[in-house]
Computed example of a mutant assay.
Amino acid sequence: MRFNPRARIDESQIENRGGGGGFGGGLGSGGMRLPIPSGGGGRIGLGTVVVILLYVVISALSGNNPVPGAGGSSDQGSTATSNCRTGADANKSQDCAIDLITNSVQAYWSTAYQEQSGQAYQQIRTVKYSGQTSSGCGTASSAMGPFYCPNDKRVYIDKSFMDDMLKGQLGAKGGPFALAYVIAHEYGHHIEDQLGLLARMRTQQGPKSDSVRIELMADCLGGAWAKNAQTTKDAQGTQIIEDLTQDDIARAIDAAQAVGDDRIQKESSGRVNPESWTHGSSAERVHWFNVGLKDGTIDACNTFAPGAL
């Protein structure tokens, strides 16, 4: 994947943070953490955190438990400066690539969401941090991987994720478009949030649970962006991504395979237990990404439709 060197990065969509304070107790604290596929290496599948967060939101709405962080510190960590300005910067720096991918994903949904749902798209921000930072859902740390927080409507990405987790612990090939898949997946959760799907999620585990359907739909919505990635433009009308190859797509698919529940379970414990799945199998994640890549619509990505799973 190559960014257009002339494309301009819209930094209003990005929050750059250093390490900093938090609410304490981590994400989904208060006894509401769900079992997640993990082994001695602390492996966590892509999107795991958002499932915990959604359960937190549902419980808070029902009055059963407080949202983590309520009454806690509001410290957001220190604000860092950015040297990311153009596509040329994004071609040289993964840090800057996160910014321009965010711009591309939101440029796509700003048009596609309104066309397909009849409602205006709500632009949000990607928070880049190192180590840990606070979020509307509790303390975010590098061990948790990327996530979407519906409480403050932010996508959180620790800048070491690609090397330390996706390539290191999960064994994906990596590359700019693998990173793009991760970001597009998290913004898929934002689309689900706007559609009202997250608030209606109830079942947390199992091969056909709401949790798995939510995750697979986010994969599909990420694929919908990928289908249209080369059509996205910056605020000045300049094409953002000018070269996207089959190898790029293959790397995104490889990343989807790396974060399947069955693969993570097998590598961490040697056993596969579908009844504890929260994200879907590797094959399902690849399938739904490809559905989005082929059809590119919210309707096609409806994993809640009868017979979808």
Rank of each mutant, 00 (worst) to 15 (best):
D254Y: 03
I249N: 04
L166V: 13
Q194W: 07
G145H: 02
G118P: 03
S142A: 12
V259P: 07
H189G: 08
Q169E: 15
D262G: 10
I249D: 00
Q122W: 05
E192N: 14
M201H: 09
S160E: 10
T133N: 01
Q123P: 09
G188Q: 10
Q123G: 11
Q246Y: 13
Q239S: 00
T245C: 05
Q257E: 15
G260P: 06
C149K: 07
A250T: 13
P146G: 12
D152Q: 04
Q123D: 09
Y156D: 08
I249P: 00
I191C: 09
G168V: 10
G188I: 08
D247Q: 15
T203V: 10
H190N: 14
A180M: 11
M162G: 12
D152M: 03
R213H: 05
H185R: 13
R125V: 10
E186G: 10
Q246W: 13
K227E: 04
Q122V: 07
K227R: 13
K167L: 12
A224S: 13
L244Y: 15
A229M: 06
K159C: 04
M162Y: 05
C220Y: 00
G168Q: 13
K233F: 00
A140C: 11
G237L: 00
Y148R: 09
M217H: 11
Q205V: 07
K167W: 08
M217P: 06
R154L: 13
G171P: 12
Q205Y: 04
S134Q: 09
A252I: 03
R154T: 09
V182T: 15
L198Q: 03
L221F: 01
I191P: 08
G136F: 06
M162Q: 15
G188Y: 09
K173C: 10
G131I: 06
D262I: 12
G175C: 12
D164I: 05
G237P: 00
G138H: 01
I253P: 01
Y187F: 15
A258V: 03
V212E: 01
Q169H: 14
M201E: 11
M162W: 12
Y129A: 01
Q122E: 12
S135P: 03
A172F: 00
Q257W: 15
A256E: 05
L179D: 09
D261Q: 06
A229I: 05
L244C: 03
A250R: 14
Y148I: 11
A256D: 06
G168L: 01
A235T: 12
D210L: 06
A199M: 05
P150K: 03
K227I: 02
G206I: 00
M165Q: 15
R263H: 11
G118K: 14
S135I: 02
P146K: 14
S160I: 09
D254G: 02
M162P: 05
S134F: 02
Y181G: 11
L195T: 10
A140P: 05
A218C: 11
D247S: 14
I124W: 05
T139C: 06
M165D: 15
A218Q: 10
Q123C: 04
S134T: 07
R263A: 06
L179N: 07
W225T: 03
A235F: 07
D163L: 09
S117V: 06
I157Y: 14
G145N: 13
F161D: 09
D163V: 11
T139V: 05
A229V: 10
D163G: 09
Y156I: 11
D210Y: 08
L197E: 09
G145E: 14
T231K: 03
Q204G: 03
G222E: 00
G145Y: 09
L216S: 07
